[in-house]
Every structure is written in C-alpha cells, then in structure tokens.
Amino acid sequence: MRDITLGQYFPCDSVLHRLDPRLKIVSLIAFIVLTFCAFNFYSLALVGATVIAVVLLSNVPVKMYLKSLKVIIIIVIITSLLNLFYGQGEPIFQWWIFKVTWAGIYNAIFVCFRIIFLILFSSALTFTTSPNDLTDALERLMKPLTVFHIKVHEIAMMMTIALRFVPTLLEETDKIMAAQKARGADMESGSLVARSKALIPILVPLFVSSFRRAYELAVAMECRCYQGGDGRTRMKQLKLMKRDYICIAICLLVIAGVVLCNIFLPQIR
C-alpha cells in the first residue's frame, strides 16, 4: 500500500531543494520542450548531460530515480520497438512485414532517451519540492488566470488538502482492512466478483470517514476565519534569490546550446 514512488517528495538538503519552486516548475516545462526539440545527437547529448547534472545536484539517491524509471520501462520498450519498425528509407534488414531502417533505429534511440529524460526531469522536481511548495508555486504561476474568473486559490487549496490526506487515508484503509479481517473478511481468495464484493466492507467505512473528516476540516478552517483567497496574506513569501538567477542563466545557456547544436552541427541521419 505504501510503495508509491512516482511523485514523492524526498526530504534532504541540496541546491535544488532550496531553489524557488516557481522557477523549478517553469524550467521543468522548458526542459521538457527542449527534450523534444533536440533533433540531433549533439543536442540530445547536451540535454542528457543536463539531466545527469540535475540528478547529481539533487542529492537524492540515484536508486530513487531508477525506481521511478522502473514504472515506465515497458512504455519505453514498446514505443521504441514501434519506432524501430516504422522508419522510412532503405531497409537494412527485413523479415516478413518487419523492416529495420537506419531512420527507424535513430527514431527508436531518440524516443527512448526522450521518455527517460522526461521522467528524470519530472522526478527531480517532485523529489526536491515538497507538495506544499509545489501547490504554492502553482497558485502563483496561475495567478494571471484569475482574469478569466478561474478560482486559482481554491484549486490550489484543494490540491494541498488532497495531497495532505493521501497518507491519512492510506493509514485509515489499513486500519479498516485489519478490523474487517478480524471479523473474518476474506480478501485474498475467491473469484473476481467475490473479491470486488469483499471491498464493500472497506469502501463504505472509508467513504463515511472521509466525509466526516472533510466536514471536520471545514469547521476547523472556518473557526480560524478562512474565507477563501481574497485578501489572504502569506507567511512564506516567495522571492527570487541569487542562486535562482544563476539557475535562470544556466537554463538559458542550455537552451541556447541546444538551439545552436540543432542549427550548426550536422544531422547524422
């Protein structure tokens, strides 16, 4: 129940942990776009070097990154294989309807690395940014949307609460499961129908207690005069520091590097 690695905060201290979360989100988007704009091996290698640098700078054990890659390894293999057989041009190897071309091989390699880089970049963000910082930053970044009457603060608050209650609900589920097992509930055996029926004694109490918690939380928030986002000040003000500006500079350099590689260095394929 507890092994959910993708999108988990890893608390420790590093330059990346201390960076402004808004900046981290924006640079994540920039790097993802960049990964898909790397058209030749030189620019792909540059993005790869950036990924490795980010992973090392984050101070998070490499094992954690590998764990999050494990989840998507099948997707990587399938997309790479599809790309391998759908290349245009002269076939270098052919068997039945499958033909392998140089273009296909290139495509497969590019797709494979792009997905891996994508996951590594996003994992780096979630490993180094606490859920609270993340929603805080999203709220700030989406602020311009208030012009369109989108309730940015409410959305961010909902996200914060949802994230906050994930571990609580997991714990609650464990408890209810144990209690029903003590009354002889059998969840490990039987047909699919029997097993889904066995979920009722767990889901009903879980829903009931979620509603109760939601109600209690709402009352507790109102007791502390919460009235939504209007006129609310914050304790932690996000402010760009020297290290944030350095980070912006580095990001711009990498972007420029990839663009230059794309334009001036030869396409291998």
Binding site: A185, P201, P205, V208
Partner: peptide, 30 residues
C-alpha cells in the same frame, strides 16, 4: 481469527451494512 476475536480501537468506524443486525451478522456469516 474466529477463535480469537479482536475489537479494535474506535471500532465504530468499521460499521458498513445498512442495518445494525446485518452488521453484527458479518462475522458469523463469514
């Protein structure tokens, strides 16, 4: 588990059936 019955802390949060009688019957039915 039938021989050693365990009542958890705050056991009222494990009730789920639509009547009390059915809920009490959950263990014996199992």
């Amino acid at each position: 588990r039938f021989q050693v019955g365990l009542v958890f802390q705050y056991p009222e949060y494990q009730l789920f059936e639509d009547t009390v009688a059915k809920d009490i019957a959950f263990g014996p039915t199992n």
